[in-house]
Design a protein around this nucleic acid. Structure first.
Lengths: 359, 359
DNA sequence: CTGTTAGCGCCTTCAT
DNA sequence: ATGAAGGCGCTAACAG
């Protein structure tokens, strides 16, 4: 029974095949300069033993670890999950695996987990910074011996590649869209403004309002909890001059707002229009369907990973890693007009493209 | 500039601190038998160098790798993403990291990725088998030198721990619920019956129907594509005796069915009731709200990981790994009555618990 | 073509 | 309390 034995080593293989370890090594590495017959013997020994190269030993020899660290706020969040999947695909193409750590958007957890991650000597790092101004993280990244790509948010003071979406422009356009519909009192709601992406969206909103000569109306009160959000909205709605449209700054805000509106029995878009940043699976199925800004989620993950592997491969050529102080890659979002903003929405019967394929 | 240098090693630290590597080693490992002064010197050297223990070297010495392999169909799927997050939390408590590989439910990719995973010598494996009857996988698992926990689905012919939900019972109960409502022609729709969990649900449905003396009505046609599903449903609805209720076997089927019904302008539940397996974020927000069976998703991931670490720790005690041929852990699902099945749903104003917290 | 050997970074005795 | 030395599994360099 070769069952549950400790892992066989290359010298086990060599012994069984009656060759030297060097030869055995050559075989697992493509078998150059090995006679066909020897090759056969070694290969059968490998099969017989169920030999698998010990990754750690290879790493120790100074090679690539064929792992990439992924440090994101959460892996259960659909946005980051999709990014992770896309990045994982790219990694697999480079024969690499993802090592995942989560931050929950907390800077202390972030640094701690980064530390743990680094012990595994990943060939590169894919990071969504919990805080774009995290000085410690920026310093770490600057000193890092391995390539790093920051995505979804920037990291100020770091000099590495960065992939984000056009939060500002997209929000500005979306707000303009609402303005074109004739709405005057557009409430900008939800989202934590300390996150860079949110603040950019907020800035886009403000800009568009200003350009149109309208007074901005912002409520950044935490709306993580549905009933709190409902209460906050109720207050706005009872105002002497209530908002005639709401622009929500993130996925969950949009959903919570919609739920609150539904609960308050406020007709959408008749009395209040709704437009959200970030698409979600059922946005087209809700009644009314929700107009949104759709970020190229998977592309964010993919591009970030591609950029990372480009740099990793650069390292193979030159001895020392030369940092390319790239301009941030800004991926365009796309406005999806559905009904909640007052548009007629997509033609009936034409199915709307979902954000991501369910399997 | 200590910038972008290769990783400093323990002997670098020792040199700077003017001590032997042995002493330096003792310091990073808790510092027993080290004088406070030496300790200081070494610690400052560590900080100065930004030293991080090389994981690979430790592994090579024969210790734990502090990594757990996670092999799932997809990480973008909300079910597995939530499982992964929960498992990751448990792993972190054990000072371990998750190495992720995806299978896309394809057996060949599965074995290949498993191979890559194993090179990293994870301390244990968390697997969702792409196919419960995958003989190769079962054999691998049986021979595996490290603990394995299979979850979400069983793996026949493997003797390891298994965490699943009560697919059969939950489906049976749900079907009974529909029957209690008085529906006679209940269509069971969607889901690929080759997946064990789906087939169990189907079995539960059949059982309940049989017990009630009703004729089962099953349509397992692929409903991955919305318009195909719509067409299939349209056919059923045009039937001389159309179904008066639909029981969908998985998340995406439920959603697609709902969309199709909406498009066909079939009133729910008035003309056709709907009940789905698996909750989803907006199930309570759709009109009508969708009654579902809610699986304890995070608990699946958590329990699987806990079971795994139990076994990993067992290994520390005994030399050899003793396989505990555990009974499968069956986690109970919960029926959530909303309106689509004909129930009055949760009290208005009471917010429904979401499947998972958005952040 | 093939065998032998020197480390990679670390931890663990074993002396001191 | 500390330093020295062996070896974990592997690859690359060198000798045959």
């Amino acid at each position: 029974m070769g069952k549950r034995n400790a892992h066989p080593t290359l010298s086990d293989v060599a012994r069984i095949a009656k060759v030297g370890v060097g030869t055995a090594s050559r075989v697992i590495n493509g078998g150059v300069n090995v006679s066909p017959m020897t090759m056969q013997r070694v290969e059968s020994a490998i099969r017989k033993l169920g030999y698998l190269p010990n990754h750690a030993a290879r790493v120790l020899k100074g090679g690539r670890t064929k792992t990439v660290g992924l440090l994101v706020p959460s892996i259960a969040d659909s946005f980051f999950a999709s990014c992770a999947e896309a990045a994982g695909k790219v990694a697999r193409c480079h024969d690499s695996l993802l090592i995942v750590a989560v931050t929950n958007n907390q800077s202390d957890a972030e640094m701690g987990n980064l530390d743990v991650l680094m012990r595994h000597r990943p060939d590169g790092l894919l990071i969504v910074p919990s805080d774009s101004e995290n000085e410690a993280l920026a310093t770490f990244v600057r000193k890092s011996a391995i390539p790093v790509v920051i995505f979804d948010r920037p990291l100020f003071g770091s000099d590495c590649a960065n992939v984000v979406t056009d939060n500002f422009e997209a929000a500005r356009n979306a707000t303009r869209h609402l303005i074109k519909h004739g709405y005057k009192r557009i409430l900008c709601f939800g989202g934590e403004p300390e996150l860079y992406s949110i603040s950019e969206r907020l800035r886009g909103y403000r800009r568009a309002m200003k350009e149109a000569g309208l007074a901005p109306l912002v409520d950044s009160s935490r709306c993580d909890v549905a009933h709190l959000a409902a209460r906050a909205l109720a207050v706005h709605l009872k105002h002497a001059r209530p908002p005639d449209a709401i622009f929500t700054l993130k996925n969950s805000s949009t959903i919570i707002t919609f739920q609150a509106l539904q609960q308050l029995k406020v007709p959408v878009p008749a009395r209040v229009a709704l437009l959200g940043f970030d698409d979600f699976e059922l946005a087209a199925t809700l009644r009314p369907s929700i107009s949104v800004i759709q970020q190229p989620i998977e592309e964010v993950g993919r591009r970030a990973a591609e950029l990372l592997f480009e740099q990793i491969q650069d390292l193979d050529g030159t001895k020392r890693y030369r940092r390319v102080n790239r301009e941030p890659v800004v991926l365009p979002s796309r406005f999806v007009a559905r009904r909640s903003c007052g548009c007629k929405g997509v033609a009936a019967g034409r199915k709307d493209k979902l954000v991501r394929a369910k399997q």
